[in-house]
Nucleic acid binder design. Structure first.
Lengths: 155, 155
DNA sequence: CTTTTTGTTCAGTAAAAATAGAACCAAAAA
DNA sequence: TTTTTGGTTCTATTTTTACTGAACAAAAAG
């Protein structure tokens, strides 16, 4: 058992933990981890069940979830019934960040709603809420321009 | 039962749901929601158990967690044994965002590790990983400057 | 038409997380 | 000193989530 093997195995488990903390399942994280360090670019369903020592159902469910959010892309070959999977080269992390910023927008709107519901609009909490809203309004207005700088650097 | 009352109640439950999706407990979210729309600035432990109809233990645990991450600040008065709680006016959302960016740094480092473990450094997946790393390297380098713009606008 | 391959889906189990209830404790009040 | 207040902590209980295993299905192969 080579050292390299253990490094990969560790990497896979670490990926599982990292994604678990992000709210994805540990198994989905493991799949991503394996897709990252596999020496093949395309990995079959069956290989995943074996390498990750997981049930077909778990792999199936998680692969589907990962495909839905387009983190993973299925790949097929003529004359081959299997489906292979790879890390989706279509993920645009800039797009992904933008989606995350939209969550911030939701939260900011919620803060506005909360502030509006307060009786005293001028106490410390209200002021803090107002400041918060002001900051996020600024952020949401300005971040596209920031992102554009990346587009300009790498068209 | 006034319409206003229901709006507040709805707001509290929504806050619970929103924070639950962010990985905090629903009850912690409810506490934050109530602290946002309460007409008092400082709210007692006991009031929280009653308004949120939750057990003392649940309130205690969640208040402690919220205090630990400094979302909530305890407030005491001379001659009063109770502890009151408020939304912490000390939360600096800029600081908070910066902490979140540090998570991105962790992820980016993990990507680098994964890329290094790949056998073929020049296939599609490797290229995609390399591009991703490049984008995040740029982002992590540039975002402090972006944040400084806010500092300049609001010193 | 029957068997095999390649998964998917459903029903049950195991594991984890959130909450409740009760015992408990320290400090203040009586 | 005893009692009450204000809350914490420990041990269930409930709820949710992830995973497994087995039944099932579609399509290809024999």
């Amino acid at each position: 058992m080579k050292a390299e093997y253990n490094e990969r195995a560790n990497f896979i488990e670490e990926t599982g933990m990292i994604f678990e903390r992000l709210g994805v399942t540990r198994m989905a994280g493991r799949i991503l981890g394996y897709l990252m360090v596999s020496d093949k670019e395309h990995v079959s369903f069956d290989e995943l069940t074996q390498v990750l020592q997981a049930s077909k159902s778990s792999i199936s469910t998680n692969l589907k979830a990962l495909s839905n959010v387009e983190f993973v892309k299925p790949h097929t070959l003529p004359g081959d019934r299997k489906t292979y999977y790879m890390l989706s080269p279509d993920i645009d992390w800039r797009e992904y960040l933008i989606r995350r910023f939209e969550n911030i927008r939701t939260m900011n709107n919620h803060f506005k709603k909360g502030l509006a519901l307060r009786v005293n609009q001028k106490d410390e909490v209200s002021n803090w809420l107002a400041d918060t809203v002001e900051f996020y309004d600024w952020l949401l207005k300005e971040y596209p321009r920031f992102m554009d700088q990346w587009q300009m650097k790498r068209p």
